[in-house]
Design a protein around this nucleic acid. Structure first.
Length: 499
RNA sequence: GGCCCGUUCGUCUAGGGGUUAGGACGUUAGAUUUUCAUUCUAGAAACAGGGGUUCGAUUCCCCUACGGGCUACCA
């Protein structure tokens, strides 16, 4: 086992947007694969034709790419275990299901959905299992000739696993340790559906085997069905090749309880998807850096024990280990997610931020003519941005004259002396070839004193003239960046509004 | 209801038989910044409860409580 090549798979079902929990599962798979020089496989589990959502598969792949966790093998980049969509592997599963029937580990069942629903409603704790299966319509209860006839007539039927009585099924989960189940509590799950598609239970076992998966990560919600899978691995004769299981703790709703669902985003005002999905803003559209998103997700249920919180993908790969994954579910905390993003923005260079910031500004109608100028702006303001979208309010005034002023902050205290002061400043600025921040500051203060004004009384108005509001970096740095002519013109324009 | 998993500050977590139970987010108060943010300093804030085991349990065991998951021809 130890010499076996590490191969892991992320196996989502294409039923809609990929949410946080799914991305984290993918991430842990990826980290484990990279750390162990293994393969990271994306397998699309589209066995439920009713829930199939157009575009979901592409969306999943786009999400993984955006996060920087591109699979080594996938439907769009097949390896030697193709195909990677279960719908395209359909014919394969029947053979294994029939084999189980032949060996007595499974059987045909002809009951209709309606009949079963009725039983569930009328019989408390009804389970299609050892207690009731003899009373239902299946190849165990019906005489062989009748079964043959039913089959010959192509009567709709499913194949169910025959759970044995009085056994204890147990295994060692990499996160939880020893876990056991009594087979008497289990029901005879459907393996092959009436439409010929396998259920998750059959497909996951067959494909993990065929694709030589060595370690299987999945959410904790799968723990109760693990014994079914264990039994299947055994009955199919593949026990020695069974992957090691790791059931990941769930990501919970920030308020109340329960696992985080796709609807919580709209309800609570934060993204649950990585990328935008059907009008709902994802972390991307919300202004998150993929590095920050990945970093945040990695620390939701995992830590390296050192107290370090900011990790690059490379660090994550080298430090990741399953025994440091926690057992308990973790509530999603959007505030903490934002903190990670702010940290990542602060630590990123203007160069790496450049294209993303440019896109944000352009989407707001700001035209960027000078990339070097933008780079300087980014360096000046990135410390005050939590989300990429914050660059718009924080940077817009570097590119366009303020559309409106915070008049409440200046008008009540406006005086003719101030008007005179700024007129003098205009002349002063006009007489210099370029604005040098430190020099300008000195001149500004000297002139204020000369006019009998307190520096503080004219600094804020000056800021509002250039910026429009009470925010932004050092005002003289702004003036220097804006340049002589623009500074003069903004003062002139503002003077008209202030007086 | 049944089965399974879990439980350290509000949240994410470290720790582990003897600790002032540590960090981070958030929060509060100061400092710095003639704006705002950053930054810095300080503060409040936790071992679910009950039994064991032990010289000593937050740490190990059991029970209870609470939380979560599953209980489909969905994954």
């Amino acid at each position: 086992m130890s010499d076996k090549r590490v191969r892991v798979r992320f196996a989502p079902s294409p039923t809609g947007g990929l949410h946080l929990g799914g991305v984290r599962t993918a991430l842990f798979n990826y980290l484990f694969a990279r750390k162990n020089n293994g393969d990271f496989v994306l397998r699309i589990e589209d066995t439920d034709q009713n829930r199939y959502v157009e575009g979901a598969e592409k969306y999943i792949i786009d999400c993984l790419n955006w996060c920087g966790i591109t699979p080594d093998e996938s439907p769009v980049n097949p390896g030697q275990y193709a195909p990677y969509r279960q719908s395209e592997r359909k014919t394969l599963y029947r053979e294994y299901a029939e084999r189980l029937v032949m060996q007595g580990h499974a059987y045909y069942a002809f009951d209709s959905a309606e009949e079963l629903d009725k039983n569930r409603k009328e019989i408390p704790n009804f389970q299609y299992g050892q207690v009731y299966r003899d009373t239902l319509r299946n190849s165990l209860s019906l005489p062989q000739p009748e079964v043959d006839q039913l089959l010959a007539d192509h009567t709709p039927h499913v194949i169910r696993i025959k759970i044995p009585a009085d056994q204890t099924v147990s295994f060692t989960d990499m996160i939880r340790g020893r876990v056991s189940f009594e087979t008497n509590q289990l029901d005879d799950k459907v393996l092959l559906k009436a439409d010929g598609m396998p259920t998750y239970h059959l497909a996951v076992v067959v494909d993990d085997y065929l694709m030589k998966i060595s370690h299987a990560f999945r959410g904790e919600e799968w723990l109760p069905s693990a014994p079914i899978h264990l039994l299947l691995w055994d009955y199919l004769g593949w026990k020695a090749d069974m992957p090691q299981w790791a059931h990941l703790p769930l990501i919970l709703k920030p308020d109340g309880n329960g696992k985080l669902s796709k609807r919580d985003g709209a309800r609570l005002g934060f993204p649950v998807f990585a990328l935008d999905w059907e009008g709902a803003a994802g972390f991307d559209g919300m202004g998150f850096l993929p590095e920050a998103f990945v970093n945040f997700l990695a620390t939701l249920g995992w830590n390296d024990g050192s107290g370090q919180e900011i990790f690059t993908m490379d660090e994550l790969v080298s430090k990741f280990s399953i025994d440091r994954i926690s057992k308990a579910g973790a509530k999603f905390d959007f505030e903490k997610a934002k903190w990670f993003n702010a940290e990542w923005i602060k630590r990123s260079t203007a160069e790496t931020l450049h294209p993303k910031v440019k896109a944000v500004l352009e989407s707001k109608g700001v035209t960027i003519k000078n990339d070097a100028y933008l780079a300087t702006v980014i360096d000046l303001i990135k410390d005050r941005c939590t989300l990429l979208t914050d660059f718009y309010p924080q940077a817009a005034y570097f590119f366009q004259t303020p559309a409106e002023y915070d008049l409440a902050a200046v008008k009540p205290k406006w005086t003719d002396e101030k008007t005179a002061f700024f007129k003098a400043i205009i002349e002063q600025v006009k007489s210099t070839p370029t604005i040098v921040a430190a020099d300008f500051e000195a001149t500004f203060k000297a002139l204020a004193e000369e006019k009998g004004l307190k520096t503080g009384d004219v600094m804020l108005p000056f800021r509002i003239m250039l910026v429009g509001g009470k925010f932004g970096p050092h005002v003289f740095d702004i003036a220097a960046l804006l340049g002589r002519d623009e500074t003069v013109s903004r003062i002139e324009q503002a003077l008209a509004a202030f007086a």
